[in-house]
Design a binder for these strands. Structure first.
Length: 432
RNA sequence: GGCGCUAUCGUCUAGCCUGGUCUAGGACAUCAGCUUCUCAAGCUGGGUACACCGGUUCAAAUCCGGUUAGCGCUACCA
């Protein structure tokens, strides 16, 4: 039975790199009908914070990576000590006293060659002479990362350790400990790192790094996952868009790339738009409701849900992020719209009273107030006035929405309704 | 400094294992054009890459060696 683990440390939020490591572990487990274990590495009691833990768990769930088991290292200190003392008894480790009299347990590294077979990179060789004796239990009584990691991976029957490239140098140290402890060494797979736009590690300076930031910015989890997948794996056949279930079928850890990848927001935005275009309007509406409430565009328990769903459908294909919706669609909810001054100067500078009046008149005469009929009436009006459609379309859009961009005009008129269009156009009709 | 990893368009990648079909394919971005209404989308087209040097071979992006560059680790952090 394949068992993998994701082992975040709650000393910070779940960042993009961590999310990607979790993704590949989860994906590998699912593709092998294996199990995905979550291990919280909270041995650093100074820096570990409950709010980080909450954020990590929430983000993992948001991305859809459910775990089969969860462990906390802070609850396992006696286990680590027990194993360290065994090594002490066997003469493989020694005690070192600090000036203050506290005792640490140190593993004695013996000269040898250490080789590992990485699932992604192949054979890697190290020489133990480059490795210092390893602290197992620190003088404060807590285990070190490399020691706790080995004791747990072995104790939790982890078969494949899939983690970031930055752990390659830890691997020989850990192999030594596995062997000293008499444990079976698992398989390793080291994923390439994700870099920031300016090279080096992804940092706040080069853009958002927390998974939860992307949620707040209006990215869909499926889109983020798809993008992260593309960062070091290709489904083949020139495919870019791939759902997680299909990825599970196609995934092979041997096909993961070796090269570090640069995070590219533009491509993430493109992927997000691709998912948004086909997103379930009901679900999108759910996402958008709190945003509209926060902007005082709707009241939480007093709005027309069906109407909102229709509007979401109207906008979804042109959204880059879910968060774009409240700004772009605000005119459907506002009583008083703000007309963009630049748009007003450009499209409403001259007097269009006659044109607007005629359009309203024709539109009011319609038997059915529907998109196609509205367009028909409009086409007749411009024909009658002998002008091009666009000389009237733009001014009407600005008068109705306050903006120069937006969905098709006739849909806008339809969803705004008779009364509101008449009233908004009326403001630009001079009384005789 | 030591040790390790990596090296195809600006970016993500396909191809590399099993040399010839690669005058290197796709995507994002970018530029130009089309699109009875903007924006978005879509469509058409353009430019842009095998890091460098040497070797093996009839033939190398593909195999080998070196150089260079980038990155990682080098903590009683994880």
């Amino acid at each position: 039975m394949v068992r993998v683990r994701f082992a975040p440390s709650p000393t910070g939020y779940l960042h993009i790199g961590g999310g990607r490591t979790a993704l590949f572990n989860w994906l590998f487990a699912r593709s092998q009908n294996g199990q995905f274990v979550l291990r919280i590495e909270d041995t650093d009691q100074e820096r570990s914070k409950p709010e980080f833990l909450d954020e990590i768990l929430f983000s993992l769930k948001w991305l859809g990576f459910n775990w089969d088991e969860v462990y906390y290292q802070s609850q396992r200190f006696p286990i680590y000590r027990e194993h360290a003392e065994r090594l002490l008894k066997e003469g493989k480790a020694y005690i070192e006293k600090s000036p203050s009299g506290k005792e640490a347990i140190i593993y004695k590294v013996t000269p040898q060659k250490i080789t590992m077979q990485d699932l992604i990179r192949g054979r890697i060789e190290f020489d133990a002479k480059d490795i210092k004796d390893q602290v197992l239990i620190k003088s404060d009584g807590t285990p070190t990362y490399n020691f706790a990691c080995v004791v747990d991976d072995a104790g939790m029957n982890i078969t494949h350790v899939i983690r970031g490239d930055d752990h390659i140098s830890n691997t020989p140290k850990q192999i030594l400990i596995y062997e000293a402890l008499g444990f079976k060494v698992p398989d390793f797979a080291h994923l390439p790192l994700i870099m920031g736009a300016e090279g080096g590690r992804l940092s706040k300076r080069t853009g958002a790094t927390a998974i939860s930031d992307y949620r707040k910015m209006g990215y869909l989890p499926e889109a983020l996952v798809n993008y992260l997948l593309l960062l070091s794996w290709a489904p083949g056949g020139d495919r870019e868009l791939i759902g997680i279930n299909e990825a599970i079928k196609l995934f092979d850890i041997k096909n993961v790339n070796k090269t570090a990848a640069t995070f590219n927001l533009k491509k993430l935005q493109w992927v997000n738009n691709q998912y948004l275009k086909n997103a379930d309007p009901e679900k999108l509406a759910d996402e958008v409701i709190p945003m509209l409430v926060e902007k005082n565009l709707i009241e939480i328990d007093n709005f027309d849900r069906n109407y909102l769903v229709s509007l979401v459908k109207l906008f979804r294909e042109r959204l880059t992020t879910v968060n774009d919706f409240p700004d772009w669609a605000d005119f459907f909810f506002l009583k008083e719209i703000q007309v963009d001054p630049v748009a007003r100067d450009k499209h409403l500078a001259q007097d269009l009273s006659k044109e607007f009046s005629l359009f309203i008149k024709r539109r009011d005469a319609l038997e059915k107030f529907e998109i196609a009929e509205i367009e028909c009436a409009f086409r007749e009006v411009v024909k009658e006035l002998g002008v091009e459609a666009k000389v009237l379309i733009h001014p009407i859009r600005v008068a109705l929405t306050g903006k120069t961009i937006g969905p098709g005009l006739f849909e806008v008129i339809y969803y705004l309704g008779k009364e509101r269009t008449k009233e908004r156009l009326g403001r630009f009709i001079k009384k005789e």
